[in-house]
């Protein structure tokens, strides 16, 4: 894209759409996690579900949460924002709860999920991502009617 108008601001107004600016970067990252977590769960559930049913169901649940967050960010508006807010909150609770459980007692989770050990298998991105996501959604509070 040639820069047609160099004076044009390269940052967007605070009330721009949820899925623009940094939101579009989040969309890509959430999309990656939606795909990788869901695909991982699908392989686990379809090929060796009996080995660790709880871990694999959790894997599937994590995948669905990422899919929901991705859809919410992409959709935008008040509905999209709500979907993203709820799924990012679940994601935060999930990564903290599962992370703590797997560190304290790994017996119940013989096989890994994205949230195991606070997402260490994914470069701890699953731990950082909900904070960035929630901060971004929080910044996009809908304006009160004036």
């Amino acid at each position: 894209m040639p820069d047609k108008n160099p004076t044009e601001a390269t940052t967007r107004p605070r009330d721009a759409a949820l899925g623009s600016g940094l939101g579009r970067v989040l969309l890509l990252v959430y999309g990656v996690f939606a795909l990788s977590a869901s695909a991982r769960a699908l392989v686990q559930i379809t090929t060796h579900f009996d080995e660790a049913p709880l871990a694999y169901l959790l894997s599937g649940f994590a995948g669905l949460v990422y899919v929901a967050a991705t859809v919410g960010l992409a959709r935008g508006g008040s509905t999209g924002r709500l979907i993203a807010l709820v799924s990012c909150t679940i994601e935060l609770v999930g990564v903290l709860a599962i992370g703590t459980l797997t560190v304290v007692d790994s017996v119940d989770f013989p096989d890994a999920t994205v949230w195991s050990n606070f997402g260490s298998g994914y470069g701890y991105v699953p731990l950082v991502l909900p904070f960035i996501g929630l901060w971004w959604i929080w910044r996009h509070k809908p304006e009160k009617a004036q």
């Binding site: 894209m1 390269t10 940052t11 970067v25 890509l28 990252v29």
Partner: peptide, 12 residues
């Protein structure tokens, strides 16, 4: 996304 965030998207 013709902003800095577009560059970040490509970077990631």
């Amino acid at each position: 996304e013709p902003t800095r965030w577009g560059s970040l998207t490509l970077g990631i």
